[in-house]
Design a protein around this nucleic acid. Structure first.
Lengths: 190, 190
DNA sequence: GGGGTCGCGTGACCTAGATCACTTTCAAAA
DNA sequence: TTTTGAAAGTGATCTAGGTCACGCGACCCC
């Protein structure tokens, strides 16, 4: 299935667009390919695109004052990613985005999203639901961080995204869970 | 300013509705008053309304297996609250909602929100932005929890919502920050 | 084919915050 | 006026997870 088909199928799950509407919407996306390790957004950049992942795996992450990395999101096929805060508030990036594997994405500019949302009620509906899912997922993760220990969160993550186990090195999993790699290692090698 | 005016002003910040459109939208809300301590949603309930706070202060919270409370949100004037996960997924509540002070709210049912979103593109636009702000705020809080210590998070909270200091007892602030009340107390009484 | 560096395990020690137990204060109910 | 109970402070102790240091195999890649 090619990029266009993947996006179409993804959107069809929440909004009913005619073929013409979808083609029009799709005409605003730009296909981009990145290789493993390539940086898409770094701290301080101006951000004006969001990215729909067609294939591969990206990570968005924050580096704190002590140079420790915290991973906000692993983005795989059909996930949307960017520095949403910088994108919507038109401020400089505080988070970074790069590629864990080679990746293919469709990029959409902030202005085009808003333009098409205004023109097509259906598209605005789609984006409301996409944002809603993101909100609920983030809220769930916050609850998990506050109420579960590292082992529970690790197993929850692998249960929900088993493919991560093979794609993503453990030190990045640790950075997602917010623990040191040593602690994660000791969970199953006591 | 009465409830209708407060809601109107709130919505006008992100969506341009004509007076007739707003009146129509407003006709789907129901005014409700609650007193201090009153429970609005408890775990296990079916949830089919969300609440726009006109006055007073509510809290939404989760009770974990060890009976420890974690506060997801303090909701004050112009905030929206409910168990969003249960509301959107039509599942039983996992979080509770009750009143820290006497409160007045406007309630809107899930079905009515979806109906009016479909009928009025403007209203869907408003809800997209409301959800978006919630998403960004939750993401910011997650980053703060993972990267800052208790003292930093406490001061960040008070800086953003100074009014909480007078309205909300410290044990609830601690439950919001995810620490014990003893630790919070010791921050300024070492 | 020998020097990096990346991922991962592991031992020894350290610390932020939890837990438990007791006390004080103060306001509201009775 | 007395009683009660929630809010808050505080000392003593415990623990999950962090930090630092080192070892070891597996790849790249000149």
């Amino acid at each position: 299935m090619d990029a266009k088909e993947i996006l179409k199928t993804h959107i069809a799950k929440t909004a009913l667009l005619t073929d013409e509407q979808f083609d029009y919407f799709f005409s605003h996306f730009k296909r981009q390919s990145f290789h493993k390790g390539q940086v898409i957004i770094s701290k301080g950049d101006m951000v004006d695109h969001e990215y729909f992942v067609v294939s591969g795996c990206l990570k968005s992450f924050f580096i704190n004052d002590e140079q420790k990395m915290f991973i906000l999101q692993f983005a795989m096929s059909t996930w949307w990613t960017t520095d949403f805060n910088a994108l919507y508030n038109q401020t400089k990036a505080t988070i970074n985005l790069d590629c864990i594997t080679d990746a293919e994405v469709l990029s959409l500019s902030n202005a085009d999203r808003e333009k098409v949302c205004k023109e097509l009620h259906n598209v605005e509906h789609f984006f409301r639901w996409r944002t809603n899912r993101g909100f609920l997922a983030t809220q769930k993760r916050l609850l998990s961080v506050m109420n579960n220990n590292v082992k529970e969160r690790y197993e929850e993550l692998l249960k929900q995204y088993p493919e991560l186990y093979n794609i993503v090195p453990k030190n990045l999993i640790a950075a997602y869970l917010g623990v040191s790699r040593e602690t994660l290692s000791r969970l199953y090698h006591p």
